[in-house]
Nucleic acid binder design. Sequence first.
DNA 1: CTGTAACTGAAAAAAGTTTTCAATTGGCGG
DNA 2: CCGCCAATTGAAAACTTTTTTCAGTTACAG
Lengths: 129, 129
Amino acid sequence: MLEAAIGKMRGGGYKATPQRTAVLRALAEEQHQSLEEIRARCPGVGLVTVYRTLDLLSELGIVRRLDLGDGARYEMAKDHHHHAICESCGDISEFEKCPLDPTLLPLEASDFEVRSHSLEVYGRCAACR
Amino acid sequence: MLEAAIGKMRGGGYKATPQRTAVLRALAEEQHQSLEEIRARCPGVGLVTVYRTLDLLSELGIVRRLDLGDGARYEMAKDHHHHAICESCGDISEFEKCPLDPTLLPLEASDFEVRSHSLEVYGRCAACR
DNA sequence: CTGTAACTGAAAAAAGTTTTCAATTGGCGG
DNA sequence: CCGCCAATTGAAAACTTTTTTCAGTTACAG
Ligand SMILES: [Mn+2]
Ligand SMILES: [Mn+2]
Ligand SMILES: [Zn+2]
Ligand SMILES: [Zn+2]
């Protein structure tokens, strides 16, 4: 898990420092954390280093940055998935089954080459109903 | 167009000031503008007033705020639609046909009540290919 | 017209992010 | 192992974006 990420860093010519490993461990503990949440999980690491590490991990494809309106959040990059966001409690859950119907994409015809997509579903989670 | 928005403001107990109308006119000129782009179209209006007007118009449902990763953008609220974003030139185009297959939404079964969704498609526009 | 609650905008504060730079260190070459 | 040095770190400062404050102004109901 972390070994793979550390290997990818070394392979890219980057050092595997204790700070970077600490940030990785923090990210592994929970998905969709804000910068401050990540920082709380690795108190020894300086603010600037957390920012820089998240940038580096994003470039390496290890981390994905989410912009869901209320500030940036970060997650370990996993398989293609989407998010269900509760408008009441803010909880973010994931689902893998992609409800996009490719045949309905009206863009292929219009010269726009689709590379990826991002879908978020908003509503009320079970607990908040 | 603007009349409807002004009426909605008055109806909500808000004043239709020249500043607010100027921001509305700026928004009507182009979709998906950043704050500074909007501000450039109504030079007489103070920065703080633009922020406050966009907040107000959002609450009234006249304006929609988009968070697409590179800072906030604003558009006049229209019918349900989605965005195709060119990763090369940054151009944002719209499409109305919603490619979501409701029967594939795996959430209805899982006690999550879906209220709305947001879908963005990333790739290359015709001009950039 | 007039009174007043709503509104505006300059300045200051707060929040979030990036840059700078001197000191430190991971890891390769010897 | 050791020592070197480019890569890395973190405190401070700078910058960017957004919010708060507050004194003066204004839209508009009555
Ligand atoms: Mn996720
Ligand atoms: Mn749009
Ligand atoms: Zn999908
Ligand atoms: Zn849709």
